[in-house]
C-alpha cells in the first residue's frame, strides 16, 4: 500500500464521518443563531437514525431497492423535525430552560427509539441489517484525477448533498433577509421585535431547521456507516457537533471545517487499525481520540468565541 493510497483512504473515511457532523452542526447553527441552545442534537440524531433505518427497512420489504435509502433519508429528516417541535414548544412558547429541555430530548429520543425498535422487531434491540443503503458514487472525470481524486470524489450521495447544504446555509444566513432576521432574533430579540420581526416565528423556524438537519445527520450514519439502527448507532456525535458549532464560531463554513476536523479524529481511529504499528497502542486511546481532541481544541488556541447575544434566554416581551 503506498502512502498516497492510504491518505486517500483517510480522506474518504473522514468524509463519511464528517458528513453527519456537518449536517448536525449546521442544525445547531440555525437553532443557536436564533437564540435557542440545542443540547438535544444527540437526541435529534437518534430520531433521524431510527427513522431512516425503520423506513428504509419498510421500503425494502415493500419491494424497493436502491430507492429505499432515499425514503429513509427523508424519514430521518421528518422525524428529527417532529421531535424538535417538542423542543420548540417547550422552550419558545412555554419558556422552559433550553438546556434542560435539550437533555430531555436526548433521554426521550433514546428511550423511545429503543422501545419502538423492540416493539417493532419482536424484542430485538436493533433493526435488521439493511440490504440496500447508500453506496459511494464516483464523479466521472474528477475521480480519475491521479493521487487523491479517488479519495475525495468517490463519496456517498449524502456527502455531495451536505456540500450543497453548507453553501446554501451560508447564503441563507448572510445574504438573505430571512438570515438577517434570524440572526437579529438571536442577537437582540427586543430590537427585532420592535421593528416588527416575530421572535417566536423565527425561533420556531431555527429550532425546526436544527431538527431536520440533525435528523439528516443521524440518517446519514444509519445509511452509510452502520447499515442499521441500534442503541450505540449514535454515541456522542451530537455532542461533538455542538462542539463543532462553538469551534466554528456559529458560521456554516467554520462549522463545516470544524466538523471535518472532528470527523478526521474519528476516522483516524478506524484508519490506524489498518497498520501494524497501531496494534501496540491500546484501542482505548483511539476511542478517546475524538473526545480528547475536541476538548483540547476548545481549551486551546480557539479562544473565547462569541456566542449569539441572546443565546439561552427565553424571550419575554414584558421585560423589554
Amino acid at each position: 500500500m503506498n502512502a498516497l493510497d492510504t491518505i486517500g483512504q483517510l480522506i474518504s473515511i473522514t468524509l463519511v464521518f464528517s458528513t453527519a457532523l456537518i449536517f448536525t452542526g449546521l442544525g445547531g447553527v440555525f437553532s443557536e443563531r436564533s437564540g435557542v441552545v440545542n443540547i438535544g442534537l444527540e437526541g435529534l440524531m437518534i430520531a433521524g437514525a431510527f427513522g431512516a433505518a425503520v423506513f428504509t427497512d419498510q421500503a425494502i420489504q415493500g419491494g424497493m431497492k436502491h430507492g429505499a435509502p432515499w425514503i429513509g433519508l427523508l424519514a430521518g429528516l421528518v422525524l428529527g423535525l417532529v421531535v424538535s417541535l417538542l423542543h420548540a414548544v417547550a422552550t419558545i412558547t412555554f419558556k422552559a430552560d433550553q438546556t434542560i429541555v435539550g437533555v430531555v430530548i436526548n433521554i426521550l429520543a433514546a428511550g423511545l427509539a429503543i422501545y419502538l425498535t423492540k416493539s417493532l422487531y419482536e424484542g430485538s434491540g436493533q433493526t435488521p441489517t439493511l440490504e440496500y443503503v447508500f453506496n459511494p458514487v464516483a464523479i466521472p472525470g474528477l475521480s480519475d484525477i491521479p493521487l487523491l481524486g479517488k479519495g475525495i470524489f468517490t463519496a456517498y450521495p449524502t456527502t455531495y448533498i451536505v456540500i450543497g447544504v453548507v453553501i446554501l446555509s451560508y447564503i441563507v444566513l448572510y445574504r438573505t433577509t430571512f438570515g438577517l432576521r434570524l440572526r437579529a432574533v438571536g442577537e437582540h430579540p427586543s430590537s427585532a421585535d420592535t421593528v416588527g420581526i416575530s421572535v417566536t416565528k423565527y425561533r420556531y423556524i431555527g429550532v425546526m431547521l436544527s431538527g431536520a438537519l440533525a435528523g439528516l445527520g443521524g440518517a446519514t450514519i444509519a445509511l452509510t456507516t452502520t447499515s442499521n439502527f441500534a442503541h450505540n448507532t449514535i454515541s456522542g456525535q451530537g455532542f461533538i457537533a455542538i462542539a463543532a458549532v462553538i469551534f466554528g464560531k456559529w458560521n456554516p463554513l467554520g462549522v463545516a471545517g470544524a466538523a471535518i476536523f472532528f470527523g478526521m479524529a474519528q476516522a483516524l481511529r478506524n484508519w490506524a487499525q489498518l497498520f501494524e504499528w497501531s496494534h501496540h497502542i491500546p484501542n482505548e486511546f483511539f476511542y478517546m481520540l475524538p473526545y480528547l481532541l475536541t476538548l483540547l481544541v476548545l481549551a486551546g488556541a480557539v479562544g473565547r468565541s462569541a456566542a449569539p447575544g441572546a443565546l439561552g434566554e427565553p424571550y419575554d416581551p414584558a421585560k423589554r
Binding site: 426521550l108 433514546a110 428511550g111 429503543i114 422501545y115 423492540k118 424484542g123
Partner: peptide
Amino acid sequence: PPEIVRIVIGS
C-alpha cells in the same frame, strides 16, 4: 421493554 421507564422519566 424496560426502556419505557426512560420515556416516563424523560417526560
